[in-house]
Amino acid sequence: MSVQAIATRTERTAVIHPVWVRIAHWINAVAILVMIGSGWQIYDASPLFGFTFPRQIALGQWLGGALQWHFAAMWVLVVNGLVYVTLGFVTGRFRRKLLPISPGAVLADTKAALTFKLSHEDLSHYNAVQKLLYAGILLVGAVIVLSGLAIWKPVQFQELTALFGGYDVARYVHFACMAAIVGFLVVHVSLALLVPKSLRAMVAGK
């Protein structure tokens, strides 16, 4: 067997994403989609800007129904997210996958991506752009949960609400985080479609 054949076979059998990562990933995916759709319906009841989301892409049909979907998905997302983040730190996966991140590497990989020269051969390692995006989305996830709590219980969590600058500002922060997550999902799904083996790895782990 040639060296190249051995390397190819090793790549196919090597575990890229352990079981807990795959389970948490797909639970998060469903919960986030439910929260975005129901969040759009909640937004439509009291818009922040001069537009509303079409009912065809919103979830819940009305404010009460949207709130029920939103809170149900919220608990799933929070519990699953806590498990994912805890295991990410305990197993050292975050340290191995997301660090280090240097500005020079991010700029170089961004240039390579824009010129379609960024390699996706080794799925076991993230490039600098992926590291930045994944680390950033974890931070956005924390902020959107905290701002959501500030909106949900502004009296009970008045210190948290005040930290965001008040109820109204917390709503804008929450919306901005939602927009960032939607943008991340667009890029994430697009790359998965462009590099199908990355999707297979998140399903099969190898």
Score class of each variant (00 low, 15 high):
residue 180 A to G: 04
residue 120 H to M: 07
residue 114 L to D: 02
residue 185 L to Q: 01
residue 170 A to V: 02
residue 93 R to Q: 13
residue 69 W to D: 02
residue 136 G to I: 05
residue 187 V to T: 08
residue 20 W to A: 14
residue 83 V to P: 06
residue 181 I to M: 11
residue 159 E to A: 14
residue 105 A to K: 03
residue 13 T to L: 15
residue 138 L to Q: 03
residue 200 R to L: 14
residue 53 F to K: 12
residue 143 V to S: 07
residue 72 A to P: 00
residue 152 W to P: 01
residue 8 T to K: 15
residue 94 F to V: 06
residue 42 I to E: 06
residue 97 K to D: 01
residue 118 L to M: 07
residue 174 H to Y: 08
residue 203 V to F: 12
residue 118 L to C: 05
residue 116 F to A: 14
residue 46 S to E: 12
residue 198 S to E: 13
residue 172 Y to M: 05
residue 141 G to K: 12
residue 161 T to C: 09
residue 52 T to P: 08
residue 107 L to T: 10
residue 76 V to G: 06
residue 143 V to E: 07
residue 192 A to S: 14
residue 13 T to E: 14
residue 123 L to Q: 13
residue 2 S to G: 10
residue 91 T to K: 06
residue 106 V to A: 02
residue 75 W to C: 12
residue 45 A to L: 06
residue 20 W to C: 14
residue 76 V to P: 06
residue 145 V to K: 10
residue 118 L to T: 01
residue 53 F to V: 09
residue 195 V to H: 15
residue 176 A to Q: 03
residue 153 K to P: 07
residue 102 S to F: 03
residue 109 D to F: 01
residue 21 V to M: 11
residue 41 Q to R: 15
residue 181 I to P: 04
residue 199 L to S: 14
residue 147 S to M: 11
residue 169 V to L: 10
residue 55 R to T: 14
residue 88 G to F: 12
residue 78 V to S: 08
residue 47 P to S: 10
residue 8 T to E: 13
residue 165 G to D: 02
residue 80 N to G: 13
residue 77 L to A: 14
residue 68 Q to N: 13
residue 147 S to W: 07
residue 109 D to C: 05
residue 149 L to S: 07
residue 109 D to I: 03
residue 201 A to N: 09
residue 137 I to F: 14
residue 175 F to N: 07
residue 66 A to G: 10
residue 147 S to F: 09
residue 133 L to D: 02
residue 57 I to H: 03
residue 66 A to T: 05
residue 171 R to V: 01
residue 104 G to P: 01
residue 90 V to F: 05
residue 165 G to L: 03
residue 8 T to N: 12
residue 94 F to R: 05
residue 43 Y to L: 10
residue 40 W to S: 04
residue 64 G to W: 12
residue 56 Q to G: 00
residue 1 M to D: 00
residue 73 A to V: 04
residue 134 Y to V: 06
residue 106 V to F: 03
residue 68 Q to K: 13
residue 79 V to L: 15
